[in-house]
């Protein structure tokens, strides 16, 4: 979660808020912030840290592990209408890629603002596509797989 905190300014600049959720109480969140996070991130993590005792929220998002009694690492990108646009769930051993989260946020914002769709690996400044009859069967003219890199 500190990796998200380190990129928080960039995420806020895109008009997004971060909410973190675990089964720990808000009291434990405070302890974690004071004893560890604030030593990793100047000022500590800047976003709200939510408490989900018993996994009620985690169950609603299908990320609560009943056996372990914890919320596993799920990430949901929710648009201004409250609709889920992206979701990613990782098994415990591997952490997130915050750069990819930011790329997805930029791509969904581009799609929402322009009505265009963004090909694989799209990033700001790269070619996006306008869906429609004219493009059908002609994607090869507008976009090459090598542009995904």
């Amino acid at each position: 979660m500190t990796a998200v905190a380190a990129k928080y300014a960039e995420i806020r600049k895109l008009g997004a808020e971060v909410l973190s959720v675990s089964v720990d109480s808000h009291f434990v969140h405070k302890m974690w912030q004071e004893h560890e996070l604030s030593k990793m991130i100047p000022g500590g993590v800047p976003y709200p840290m939510l408490s989900d005792p018993g996994g009620r929220i985690g169950r609603a998002y299908a990320v609560y592990d009943e056996a372990a009694g914890v919320d596993i690492r799920g990430r949901f990108l929710i648009d201004p209408d409250g609709v889920i646009q992206a979701m990613e769930v990782l098994a415990p051993a591997v952490g997130r890629n915050v750069g990819e989260l930011i790329r997805q946020l930029q791509a969904f914002q581009h799609a929402r603002q322009t009505g265009q769709v963004t090909p694989s690996g799209w990033a700001p400044g790269k070619q996006a596509l306008t869906p429609g009859p004219e493009l059908t069967g002609k994607v090869f003219e507008a976009w090459k797989p090598g542009e995904a890199d």
Partner: peptide, 28 residues
């Protein structure tokens, strides 16, 4: 929630009108 150094209540629908990144994690 623990937010801005104090305790509060956070409701997802309070964030309507902006993008939200909701991140679950196994534990502090």
């Amino acid at each position: 929630a623990f937010v801005d150094g104090t305790f509060g209540v956070v409701k997802l629908s309070d964030y309507k009108g902006q993008w939200v990144v909701l991140c679950f994690y196994p534990g502090d």
